[in-house]
């Protein structure tokens, strides 16, 4: 490790992880299980979204209970662009990220004046507002949402509707962004963000522009979530207001804590465990939420560092 503050995986595990993710769909196709390629794409997308929330909660100390609205902003942007005839992912996905960023800038500018519980509540309130806007506007499909007749395309003769092609596109985006996130966390801005999490008053006193740094972090997280929303719209070929519901924000938070807030792969681990558990148990019982609730309660009470932390404890 370069320094004790360095965040991120070491080269060898990174290589192993990425290589196995690259090989995964090949194996799944060989055993004729295309369904699990779709599931893996979903896990990757949620891993990205949860990681963006982890940036806020784990590294920035900003407990936002409205993260789903940025996901929704990105998803609806992609859907509206497709309906307007703009079918290129090269345009739609950056636009989704931009939508998330703009919304985050607006919400952050107001919310970051408050602290603690009030911050939790005001992010929730803004997300609720976004929810009701989407529900009420007929141009956005109201309660029915919008259906995307086609996924956005990548050019080069690639078919985005092939499960494997879509998976690799998602994997590319996610790996790229996780690498970017790692750089950010080790860059001056990222370090300042973490220092503010630990003691904002002191940082303010030293002369750091606390509000602006936090806002920058908030906007970056919003943009990442927006991009995740864009991917999600493509995956499902539909968007609906339930993407923005407050329980969705709660679920994202659950992923972060389950995986381990403030651990680099915390969001990834949490998303994977939660989604795979849901998938695994959905055939056995309709009361999956009971199990998730019990596990979550146990994690909060007995392993507050999340599964990533638990792993470290066991490994030690």
């Amino acid at each position: 490790m370069a320094s004790t503050l360095h965040i991120g995986l070491r080269p060898l595990p990174t290589l192993v992880l990425v290589a196995s993710l690259v090989l995964l769909p090949v194996v799944l196709t060989a055993v004729d299980q295309p369904f699990y390629i779709v599931l893996a794409s979903r896990v990757l997308i949620y891993a990205l979204i949860a990681s963006s929330l982890n940036l806020l909660i784990g590294y920035g100390g900003m407990v936002s209970l409205g993260h789903a609205c940025f996901v929704g902003a990105g998803a609806y942007t992609t859907a509206v662009l497709v309906h307007a005839g703009i079918g290129s992912a090269w345009l739609a996905w950056p636009a989704a990220a931009l939508a998330g960023a703009v919304l985050a800038a607006m919400i952050g500018a107001v919310s970051l004046r408050t602290r603690g519980v009030y911050f939790i509540m005001i992010t929730l309130a803004f997300a609720q507002m976004a929810y009701y806007v989407v529900v009420s506007l007929r141009a956005l499909g109201g309660d029915d949402g919008l259906v995307l007749p086609r996924r956005t395309g990548y050019g080069f003769g690639l078919d985005p509707h092939a499960d494997m092609t879509f998976y690799y596109a998602v994997l590319g985006v996610v790996v790229l962004l996780m690498a970017g996130l790692r750089r950010l966390l080790n860059a001056p801005l990222g370090r300042a963000l973490q220092a503010i999490r630990d003691n904002d008053v002191r940082m303010e006193a030293i002369g750091f522009p606390v509000f602006r740094i936090q806002l920058a972090g908030f906007v970056i997280a919003g943009a990442t979530a927006g991009l995740g929303g864009g991917l999600l719209a493509d995956l499902n070929q539909q968007v609906s207001p339930s993407l923005l519901h407050w329980t969705q924000s709660g679920t994202l938070m659950v992923m972060v804590i389950l995986g381990g807030a403030g651990r680099f792969l915390g969001g990834v681990l949490g998303a994977a465990v939660l989604l795979l558990a849901q998938e695994l148990f959905s055939d056995v019982t309709t009361h999956t939420a009971l199990g998730i609730g019990l596990v979550l309660l146990a994690v909060v009470l007995f392993a507050p560092a999340g599964l990533a932390g638990l792993w470290r404890q066991v490994a030690r």
Binding site: I120, M253, A289, L290, I292, G293, L296, V300, L301
Partner: peptide, 26 residues
């Protein structure tokens, strides 16, 4: 949970919602 952060309180009580809803459903 009193001494824990608000984040943990949000999550633990969110877990309680999930548990209570399923129990009531059962």
């Amino acid at each position: 949970l009193y001494r824990r952060s608000h984040l943990h309180q949000v999550l633990a009580t969110f877990a309680l919602i999930l548990i209570a809803n399923e129990l009531v459903r059962i």
